[in-house]
């Protein structure tokens, strides 16, 4: 599936909930289920700096595709980042760099997308794309 298709699937899952609380309960479940990243990967260069919660994102380049790992000290943030990783993991740097990740707009979690919200998804999306760009650059060298 393409990143956009996975995104649509995620948005469809969230449409099933009509209550905000159910959405958050699902997000909390996802957050709890996100595999933790190694403590040694929680280093400052993997930290997305913000004022509300800490988010670490690391990435590996395996056989032409990117595998991201993420963690946060806040569960809702972990849930959100897990949605993002589900969409992008296993795709090529090119696909990730050009992906439309606006599917998160349709999950009803839009307030987390606000650029003024610290540690919002915007910063995470930027970091994910940044890694993809770095791998792409390395590949072409």
């Amino acid at each position: 599936m393409t990143i956009e298709e996975i995104g649509k699937q995620i948005a469809a899952e969230f449409e099933l909930f009509d209550d905000w609380m159910d959405k958050y309960n699902y997000l909390i479940e996802l957050g709890k289920g996100l595999p933790l990243i190694d403590e040694q990967k929680k280093k400052p260069e993997n930290l997305i700096v913000g004022c509300q919660s800490k988010v670490w994102i690391s990435a590996e380049y395996i056989d032409g595709t990117v595998l991201y790992h993420a963690d946060s000290d806040a569960i809702i943030t972990k849930g959100l980042v897990s949605l993002l990783l589900r969409a992008v993991n296993g795709h090529t740097p090119d696909e990730i760099m050009h992906a439309d990740l606006s599917f998160l707009d349709n999950t009803g979690l839009k307030e987390h997308l606000s650029p003024t919200r610290s540690n919002g998804l915007v910063a995470m999306v930027k970091q994910v794309k940044f890694y993809a760009m770095a791998f792409k650059t390395r590949e072409s060298n």
Binding site: I28, I75, T77
Partner: peptide
Amino acid sequence: NVHPYDAGTIIDH
């Protein structure tokens, strides 16, 4: 066991 950010998000709702 609840991060202030998580709690604040729900309280806001």
